[in-house]
Design a protein around this nucleic acid. Sequence first.
DNA 1: AATTAGCCC
Length: 619
Amino acid sequence: MHQRTEQPGPGSRPTLHELVRQLSACMLRDQRGLRVRLQKVQEMLRARRPAERLLAQIGVEVKRSREWRARRQAQLPRPVFPGELPVVQKKAEIAKAISENQVIVLCGETGSGKTTQLPKICLELGRGVGGMIGHTQPRRIAARSVAMRIAQELDSPLGQVVGYKVRFADKLSENTYVKLMTDGILLAETQGDRFLEQYDTIIIDEAHERSLNIDFLIGYLKQLLPRRRDLKVIVTSATINPEQFSRHFGNAPIVMVSGRTYPVEVRYVPIGGQEDDPDEDEPTLQDAIVGAVDELEREGRGDVLVFLSGEREIRETAESLRTHEAKGSEILPLYARLSTEEQMRVFQSHSRRRIVLATNVAETSLTVPGIRYVIDPGYARISRYNTRTKVHRLPIEAISRASADQRKGRCGRLAEGICIRLYSEEDFNSRTEFTDPEIRRTHLAAVILQMMALRLGTIQDFPFLDPPDYRAIRDGYQTLHELGAIDEQNELTEVGWKLGKLPIDPRVGRMILAAREEGALEEVLIIASALSVQDPRERPMERQQEADLAHAKWRDASSDFLSFVKLWEWYHERAKELSTSKLRKACKENFLSFVRMREWNDIHGQLVGLVREMGGEGK
DNA sequence: AATTAGCCC
């Protein structure tokens, strides 16, 4: 360590070989770049060209990176674990599996504590030093709230030891060991960090949800693993098909962790099954739900969660329950388009029995607290792209067994529960085991474009868990042809590269590129960004006419798109003059979601910036 | 006439 191979003195600098040896003590994200530059020095020396200055520069950076890593090593947090959680009881087994394998699959039910404790187990193993522990969540709220919880448990302010990054918001620092993010963010980061060298460990949480992002990441990681032998990957999943993940990663070990839930009794009550009066009208879903609510009322107190397929069905069911349930249970609708305020009512305490009428938000995104009973009619709207007709649709379909069990699991977190399925057991058994993953149901143009922009090879060769259908692939290529994104050889064109840089559907992106030539860029940017956020116009169930009236001032007789432009102008005139709180109030009075208006504005700003960067006219 | 929910460069 103290040997000096060159002349001693204040100017003494490490040699090329010393620096090469020191690379492994640097942060992972610096190693590759530094190695390349050191190779350049070696070539220069061989060619007998002077390289001292470059070597000195690299030396400074190596030192900085080594010191950074040493500091992280020294300050590595020592987590404490709450004893009661199931995942903590299996801590040793999990830690051993992680140490001995590059990939493991952790299978844990709700309430197992996997999401919060797993990153801490990784820290205890000394991971997170040379690179962060990256931890993905399917939703932004989850990424933030999980970050907050882990930060609390590690007794560190959010953004220090534990940070997060979601679109348009992050809280991270040089000292961050655990980074929560949406899976979309990690995927986006592959563009600038192809080897994901910010991380020494990656946790893909809720992988059973099988969104496009998750499937893409799982395939990406599979390709990356042989090139990043030091990277550890943990895939976590509910007990839905963990074997498939395991097989995909060369029979990675599966660690099972129990949840903390109570047993749920399942009753099959097919619609009209118990009625045989031929004079009666055909029994409806509404009758069946009312019947089930009555049946559950006889079971004792407790809130009920009913899964429905859409807003209209919720409204109808609310009406039939209100006319029927004179005793006055509290009936609450719950779906994503509801304003935050209205959604929050689900979390407020209450005295009367509550019946929550929810869409699939309640299956994954939102956990309704205090539910003792579930009523499951067994249907949901599922998006499907039809390659033959080239149309996206949202048909109501029978849900899979896995989905039905997920719904069932929404009660029984507090005490024993009952789940009434409004179909027969034979019906249940005849259903598909799992919901089709999104990659099998969606339009593939965006996926193919993204893969080409990342130079991931062809979609046919990519290691997907479930490869998409051949016809869907062909259709995706065809769309890209029509957009002018690829040429006859299926290579990306200049337009294609540009579309790949825009974080929106390539068809919408193409509108923007065309608008630059047509002199309509300003309007089209407003419309394009509007198309990629949820509609900010709110229509609360009890005040729909009022809302429609407020929205009417932006209506354009010729085009819904131009309504967006009018609304945009209305908002920005006020945004210029009003304080934030007054603007928020103006939004509320006009039945607009302030949060979504801001998101629209943020996306718009992002697109404006990217279009400007593209520069140049035309093409 | 009618639409679930989620995400990003």
